[in-house]
Design a protein around this nucleic acid. Sequence first.
DNA 1: ATGAAAGCGCTAACAG
DNA 2: CTGTTAGCGCTTTCAT
Lengths: 306, 306
Amino acid sequence: MVTIADVARHAGVAPSTVSYVLTGKRAISGETADRVRESIRSLGYRQRAAAIGVLLPLRDGVNVAVAMRFVRAVVAAARVRDRDVLVISADEGADGVLRAVESGVAGLVVMDVEMDDPRVPVLRACAVPSVLIGVPTDPCGLSCVDLDFAAAYALCVDHLADKGHTDIALLGPARAVYERRTGYAERGVAGFSAAALRRGVNFVVRTCESDGLAAKQLLTDHAEITAVVVHNEAALSAVLACVQPPIDLVAICPDEVARRTEPKVSSVHVPAEDLGRRAVELLMARIDGAPPQGVELSVPTLTVRD
Amino acid sequence: MVTIADVARHAGVAPSTVSYVLTGKRAISGETADRVRESIRSLGYRQRAAAIGVLLPLRDGVNVAVAMRFVRAVVAAARVRDRDVLVISADEGADGVLRAVESGVAGLVVMDVEMDDPRVPVLRACAVPSVLIGVPTDPCGLSCVDLDFAAAYALCVDHLADKGHTDIALLGPARAVYERRTGYAERGVAGFSAAALRRGVNFVVRTCESDGLAAKQLLTDHAEITAVVVHNEAALSAVLACVQPPIDLVAICPDEVARRTEPKVSSVHVPAEDLGRRAVELLMARIDGAPPQGVELSVPTLTVRD
DNA sequence: ATGAAAGCGCTAACAG
DNA sequence: CTGTTAGCGCTTTCAT
């Protein structure tokens, strides 16, 4: 195995110099750096490229399939930049961050972010750079990417209001997701309510477990409902079986899921691929010394189907 | 951070003794081991638990969604045993194994196995234990788990022959999958052909890209075909749009995929969850010193739907 | 800007 | 069975 010492000998420099060329933690003259890089290439040295860690709490209500959609995107994006991905299933809040950091990752992609996420202060203080997929209440000093879920929910409301509906319902994620104040769920409801009030539309909000039973209960309890917004990929097919025309339906889910339903459902796209890729881009920039970029929300779009 | 030296001091032993208690690489007296473990607990030492590596080539024809189904299962199973998972996207054959080993994983789960996989000799020689999801031509000295794809394809043929079909077709994975002699594809075709010959059924075999166009071409070229077996998750919906009744169809795919199609398609279940979990079980046993277990094939089952 | 040397946490060879 | 010691590859401090 080619070590940093081999490279140093070959380039006629000290091991520390090679280390500094690789980490960029102190200035090395262009000439020396070039010689080192040349030796690295000719000897085929591979720095045990520290992986990117994905912090993935697998708690109640977290749909692993949905989470894996992001992981997949992160893996693909990391691969382009020659990084492997360490999937760290951490349910222990702030301790999970420490565990991840101790595992020696170059940077962290943090998923399933809560409004007052206990991991946030740790991440802020931490030397290891991170990018959150999701936005906490106070994102200062962090890098966050997410879909603008408030706007996404509002888009659904506007679409239904435009079609003349005056009594609509929201079937959200599982109750556990709200209980821990998950960012996207809370911001979504805020956007939904605000839009409905703005439009003068009556609305009901319900949580929905993956069995989708809440849909039936909802229609029983509220016969006046003529349209439903559902943000729950796990329950989508069950909800579809229950919410039939003439009741209108809009889903918040990835397009490829919406295209597979029967009938094909109108939806606001959750761009998991884009968000995962963007998170890696920002993280790599952070690893290379860039400062935190703050919050970057992507604009939702609605596709009308059947 | 609590180090192994801290634990050693607290327990009144040498650092190496603590190391050996943790790795089990040499015998330590029960008394001493207990004292060490007690110190580990009271000091809160966390051994930077080496991750399990998942070797995942992302080449042409590899459906990342399908691969991620296995990764998901591996992550869930590893989590139960307090291990994180390093997803290593390695397209470089044998070099990929070395890269994975150098990254310091405790063991490897190897996916997308080819008949004469160049990684196999390396894995056999390698000190890091591994479990393959898939079976190469010569699995001696390895641990392999997989669905018995030969039996799975044969099951489809028997089902269709029993229904009276005399001209059937196989739509397999993408051509690239055959070109690199991927294990499951090659064993599948073998099982398919053998079963068809046994049953005296005429058959055609075609590769199928993810666009599913091969389905249309197949039916144009072979008007005599009355039933199709498709083993291609990416192309399944496109194939379904084309292969309509009265032509019979059986898919080889996970049940949850088959249940979502419209109409719901008869299928042989690919138990990705079970295989991923089993792979981790076997790998953990290997890490704890068990010898290679050879090949473990799971028995396919067919579910008849619409 | 660079090198020498000490140190990191851990494992493995050696000694008894 | 266990402690001593030398190493592993790499980073960081200290010096110049």
